[in-house]
Design a protein around this nucleic acid. Structure first.
Lengths: 99, 99
DNA sequence: AAGATATATCGACTTTTCCCGATATGCCAA
DNA sequence: TTGGCATATCGGGAAAAGTCGATATATCTT
């Protein structure tokens, strides 16, 4: 069952916060402006805001990506993350019809 | 944060199944017919269908209730559980506006 | 009052999650 | 090509969740 993975990814306060922050990157990650927001927000920005170690944030973003809730773009040495709205559409569908 | 509790409750295959079964009690718990379905389905029925021990199922139902996803009615020596649609409405709201 | 039945709680053990520091990898600049 | 960033992965210790069997509690029947 794949639904469980999604809900596990959502079962953590920091990960929920990250998803929420990524709804409004310009507001929540002003320092990202240098890089632009087209590809998402890079890990370092998220790490600073989350107040967790780099490894933890990287791990959390992988978890969210495996669950389909974010997607990433590697550009040079940076990895940009942004919400994957398709994943949220799937989540809605799961809740409406499979639970 | 309370959202985390809800998602943790949903992070388990058996608990997801129980919630789904409770959508159509008449179909999924035919042996409950003797007691009627007005108050929900009693723990024993859910246990049999889930194939877990009595203590585990009782614990799972408590977890779901703490998360607001089911509600219970004690009648005599039986505890009947049913879905709490208010909880699902809250879940939808959380997903729409807080994540 | 005694036994039977349904559910809840307790104690224990195993597995998973949380989060870290250390190290590896990939990319860029000089 | 050497060093410096940004990110990913690895290894680990502490805390939480998964699940069980045993026991407690509440209720019903006789």
């Amino acid at each position: 069952m794949d639904q469980v993975e999604i809900f596990k990814a959502l079962s953590n306060k920091s990960r929920l916060q990250i998803l929420n922050w990524l709804k409004e990157p310009e507001t929540n990650f002003p320092d990202q402006a240098v890089h632009g927001y087209a590809n998402g927000v890079c890990v370092g920005q998220i790490q600073m805001k989350a107040g967790l170690t780099q490894s933890t944030v990287s791990e959390y973003l992988s978890t969210l990506q495996r669950a389909g809730l974010v997607k990433s773009n590697r550009v040079g040495q940076w990895t940009y993350y942004q919400r994957n709205e398709e994943g949220f559409a799937l989540l809605n569908q799961i809740i409406q019809s499979e639970i």
